[in-house]
Design a protein around this nucleic acid. Structure first.
Lengths: 338, 338
DNA sequence: TTGAAAGCGCTAACAT
DNA sequence: ATGTTAGCGCTTTCAA
């Protein structure tokens, strides 16, 4: 396969020759311009099909035509959160015939900078990024690149161009207030590698602020320097309860994966929820809501963030006005684990 | 932002002029050719930095330079399976400075064909695809495109160029044999939208074949025409047990998401696992293994499939020999739910 | 080690 | 409605 030296792919020139028109007419026809007559359109289409012509967008974009590529930089694909965002993005982009060109930064500003440089070198139509501590260079490149740039997930900081997301600090704060109103007083926290995930940090900040408002503070805290997972949450809760801190009445987890792990730990060792211990998470994943007792959590609208970000790029490209900030909000879910 | 008419980005020509060399020398320097002297290299790099030069790979690729884009077509991003594959792919590609350009086919052959056409029009260096019933046109385009093409997930059919995956039929068969050896006899199945997911179908085929070997057949079967999810598995098991089929002693689910839903249903209604009912899934997800009772399942090596596929593309590009078929295998996990 | 020439395949701009 | 001209910014020969 692919061994015989290919007889060079037909170009627009060949197609035009076969159809008996000029190159530019063939180009217009194939791109669906409405100035070509139906007859020429058909001739060109037939020529293209019979020759097996395949458009070369490299040349098209270089010559000043539009690109349909959108750079997308995400910190990770390890849990379902960013795939959900990507799904929303892809969905909306695909409807417009656009494609995401993907880069994963691993929460590393240096890698992120490298990715930005790399992706921009393809002259994409737009860029969507879930920032991981952008460097000065990163900001400069994006600000100077003259394309729509959407920073996603968080709206707690000022964006270079546009931002779509929610306030993670606000989510933590709302959850704290909700739980305090329900009567909980002795709070503990189980988190994952928080140094790199500043959105989790923002939630914890907000949560802590909520406790402070009521004159409370954490009675215990376990942070494990690993990526979040169900297994890690299970282990984390086990550590927390084994430590000599005051027995908490509610444990706030850095996200739902972790919280589900906490629920499983309780099931395994016979702690009854929510009487003996209450649990809250963040994200509103399917898995948490399908538990025998649905998880108390905050639903983040991940797919909607992706869709909205894509919409912002597309709108800007079509010359429409776009909001600088879009808050997709969050939804507190008062489940059965609290 | 982005409003002032941009003063046109500096091109290689500007960089070369600043460095006092020719365009081609600047090009060679910036691409890390080892024929330029260290002095010229430095001059060029300085010029590039001071001008804020950003390489244009559109032009580079059009002029015959290499592309570092790899088309990736997946059927879905809705559960963690394909993101895991994508993660493996991205990881390996990124190390080589390559980027996936993504398309989601939604298990639809027509969309898939459109995506192939679209992605190929960017003249990527390679293409990785989890096929969803490729059309004749799709096969023709891929066979004629003269680039490395890797079909992933399944190795039960003959690939156009290369294939990386596992035998889903074999996985179903192995699970059936294992369970029969453990003494189970009354099997039922709960599945999701199987018409579109032919890998799930292949597993079921294999599983059924295993039953046949032992002179057994399914005592019950529920198939719900929706994407798989924990919630759906829970619902599916509820329906199965409410139907008038013979009471099964083991339920095989179309995947782990579904199976975990089944486990949750049992927990909720007080069916004890595995005494009253046994459950088996497929994929070996973290969530299943973190259950109070770890799930019996077959681990698929998803990230490894992605990594291997990327490696195949990269190898082929560097002129090395590549295997036509790579079987990454699967691992049966005898958990506590059976 | 460096450079000059020639194009990659297409599209915008300006005719006609 | 169609065509002509002139590049887009780079890299591959081929030469010096």
């Amino acid at each position: 396969m692919n061994k015989e030296k290919s007889p060079r792919k037909p170009t627009l020139f060949e197609v035009a020759a076969h159809a008996g028109v000029s190159e530019i007419t063939a180009s217009r026809a194939l791109r669906g311009s409405n100035v070509v007559t139906p007859e020429t359109l058909q001739k060109v289409q037939e020529a293209a099909t019979s020759l097996g012509y395949l458009r070369n967008r490299l040349a098209g974009a270089l010559a000043g035509g539009p690109s349909n590529q959108v750079g997308v930089i995400l910190p990770s694909l390890s849990n379902i959160v960013f795939p959900d965002v990507l799904k929303g993005l892809e969905d909306r982009l695909e409807h417009a015939g656009f494609h995401p060109v993907l880069g994963i930064s691993n929460y590393d500003p240096e890698q992120e900078e490298q990715l930005i440089r790399n992706l921009l070198s393809w002259r994409p139509a737009g860029l969507v990024i879930a920032p991981s501590g952008m460097t000065e260079n990163s900001r400069t490149m994006l600000a100077g690149a003259d394309l729509p740039v959407v920073e996603i997930m968080d709206i707690d900081t000022d964006p270079i161009d546009m931002a779509v997301g929610m306030s993670h600090r606000g989510a933590g704060l709302a959850m704290a207030r909700h739980l305090i109103a329900r009567g909980y007083r002795r709070f503990a926290y189980v988190g994952h590698d928080i140094a790199r995930d500043n959105r989790a940090t923002a939630r914890l900040d907000g949560f802590t602020a909520g406790l402070n408002e009521a004159g409370l503070k954490m009675v215990g805290c376990v942070t494990l320097v690993e990526p979040s997972s169900v297994a890690l949450g299970r282990r984390g809760l086990n550590m927390l309860l084994g430590s000599d801190c005051a027995r908490p009445d509610l444990v706030y987890f850095s996200n739902d994966d972790m919280a589900v792990g906490g629920v499983f730990h309780c099931m395994a060792v016979g702690i009854s929820l929510p009487d003996q211990l209450a649990i809250a998470g963040f994200n509103g994943l399917d898995i948490g809501q399908s538990l025998p007792t649905p998880l108390t959590t905050t639903a983040s609208h991940r797919a909607r963030i992706g869709e909205t970000a894509a919409a912002c790029v597309l709108k800007r490209l079509s010359g429409e006005e776009t909001p600088r900030m879009t808050d997709v909000g969050f939804t507190l879910i008062a489940g059965g684990t609290s």
